[in-house]
Every structure is written in C-alpha cells, then in structure tokens.
Computed example of a mutant assay.
Amino acid sequence: MALTDVWFLLIAILWTGYFVLEGFDFGVGALLRVLGRDDTDRRIMINTIGPVWDGNEVWLIVAGGATFAAFPEWYATLFSGFYLALLLILVALIGRGVAFEYRGKVDTPQWRARWDRVIVACSITPALLWGVAFGNIVGGVPLDADHEFVGSLLTLLHPYALLGGLTTLLLFLLHGAVFLSLKTDGDIRTRARALAVRLGFGAVPVAAAFLLWTWFDHGADVVTAVLGPAAAAALVGGILATRAGREGWGFTLTAGTIVAATAFLFTALYPDVLPSTIDPAFSLTTTNASSTPYTLTIMTWVAAVMTPIVLLYQGWTYWVFRQRISRAHIPSSPAPAEEHA
C-alpha cells in the first residue's frame, strides 16, 4: 500500500472517530430543550457530555491537520471552495463551547434559557452542515483545470448534499438520544429511550436513501456491497436494542452505523479526494493532491507513536466517567444571595 493510500485511510479513520464521538455530543445538545423539561434535566444532559465533548473535538482538529499535511491541494481547494459553509460550522462550534461555559455563570432562568438556545442551534448547525459538506465531497464539485472551485455557496446546496445533511442530522440525533438513555437514569432515561425509537423511524429511510443514491452514482463493488447493508442492519439493530432497554448494545450499534456509513462514503470516494463535475480529469486524487513521500514518511512515524497514546488516554477518560447520572447527582442551584455570601 502506498503512503498516499495509508494517509487516505488514516484521514477516513479520523473522520469516522469524530462523527461517532462528536455525533452523540451534537445529538445531546440538539435535544436539550426537547428532553430537558426543566433546568435539572438540562443539567443532567450537559453533564453526560461535559467531561468529553472538548476531547471529542480533537478528532476534528487532527483530521484537518492531517489533511493539510498529507494532501495540501485537497485542503486548499476544500477550505477555499467551502469557505462560507466551514465558517458557519466553526462559528457554531465556538458558540457551543462558549454556551457550555457561560450557561451557569448567572443563576437566572432567562440567562440559562438564552444559552440553552445557543447550545441547540450550535449543535444542529454542524450536524447538518457536515453532511452537506461530505455530500459535496463524495458527489463532486465544479473544479477547473487548476483544481480551483468555480461554484458558489448555492452550488453546494443541491438535493444529494442536502439529503446528506438530513442524514447526518437524524443519525446524530438518534445517536445522542441513545447515549442519553445509556448515561442517565430515571424519567429522562425513559423519555430518551422512547425518543430514540421515534427518531429511528425517520433515520432509517433517510439514511437508506442517501446510501442507495451514493451507491448508484458511484457503482457497486465488494466493499460497498458489504458496508451498505451493514450500516442498515446496525441502525435497525440499535433501535431495537434501545427499545428493549439494552442501551449498551443500542449505543454500540448506532456507533457501528456511523462507522459503516462513513467507511461507505470514503470507499465510494477513493481514489478521488474531491471529484470534479466539470471533467473527471480535473479531479483531485490521492496522487495529485498529496505531499512528498518524505513528508508522508515522517508523518507516518509520528502517527504510529502518538495515535496509541491518544486512544489510550481518551479511552481512560470514558472509563472514569462511565457512571449513569440522575437527578440525585445534580446539586440545587444556589440562590443569588448565597452566591455572594
């Protein structure tokens, strides 16, 4: 396997990890005012992801850095052509982080409600736009002979990409609801489990339509013929397991759905990294978009040393914070007079 193929695979793994881990973060944030009937419920929901959400975002940073270093031409064209969409995602990620930190700074219902709305909006936005972005990456964009994007923001909003956005949004909402049913106890656990089943009725046909559209556009091969049904089976299995109260299996299977679906997309994309809809000869590939072999060699050694360390540390973090959270674990908010006493 050439180093360019190795790094294409590593970038696919990084994006897969990001979607699995940040996916339930987005889902929890988006459902904050749906499942959270009062402030205590919302504090429970935020506390389920509080120790891990910022660590989950590291996968995005590493995926972007790896793309920049391994495939600079891909990075340059992607971030210039998708500039406005990616800027919206960046603003949403910043707003979400600020909202998590500022929500508890003032003990008034109005203050918390304002930041709760920010969390919801800034969770839905990237959950939707990442699907739109990957719909364009896999489906192709207008690239000229110089590998320059010659479209506009509206060019990116075609039916296939919008279906991709709806798919990621529904999958992340489902993944988040299953995660909440796994990480909470009491009434909120029951409601999260019921909501996950209802979300599944929407996620299954939408995800199936998106994968079938991709399959017909890019042609079938052995790998996609396995990954597509695997994603569908995992999705249905995750819904059924959650409905039966087996939230651990439910979360594992919804995570498996995201893994299989992301692998499906990268398999359909290869060996391109950004196809051109003007002329296939103008497409960016793993060969013409890559760095030099020397750069890739150094990066490979660094990745071989650092990746296991990062995985072990993050796995340890999830193990430490593995307990369920209920209303009994949430202390009462101090009254304003007590805060200054």
Results as ranks from 00 to 15, higher is better:
P142E: 11
W249H: 07
V52L: 07
L212C: 08
L174P: 05
A341V: 07
G238M: 09
L171F: 03
H147F: 14
T40Q: 11
A76I: 12
F282H: 11
R37W: 00
S333E: 15
P275E: 12
A337T: 13
A337D: 14
E338S: 06
T285I: 11
V52M: 06
L163N: 03
V226R: 02
D146W: 09
G165F: 11
A233G: 04
T77Q: 06
W74M: 15
R246L: 13
D107P: 00
N47T: 13
W74H: 07
G65K: 05
P336L: 02
S283E: 12
A133E: 08
P336T: 03
A194H: 10
W130G: 04
C122M: 15
W115K: 02
I325R: 02
I239Q: 00
G135H: 05
G140C: 09
V305E: 04
I124R: 03
T167W: 06
I11S: 10
S332V: 14
F321G: 03
V223I: 14
T167F: 05
I119W: 01
L240A: 09
G17L: 15
T307K: 00
R189G: 00
F134C: 04
T307H: 01
T167K: 05
T16E: 08
L10Q: 11
I258N: 06
V120M: 11
T242V: 09
E339P: 00
D272A: 05
G135Q: 06
L128F: 14
L240Y: 07
Q110M: 09
L21R: 03
W111T: 01
D107T: 12
L296K: 01
W15G: 06
V206Y: 01
W130P: 04
V58A: 14
G140D: 12
D107A: 11
G237P: 08
V197E: 13
L154Y: 12
A161Q: 07
I239D: 03
F134V: 10
E57F: 02
K105A: 10
S326M: 08
G97C: 06
L84C: 03
L199M: 09
K105W: 08
A241G: 04
N56A: 09
L154H: 10
R96D: 12
A161N: 04
A2Q: 10
V34K: 08
W215Q: 13
M306W: 08
K183V: 11
G200R: 04
F24L: 09
R324E: 15
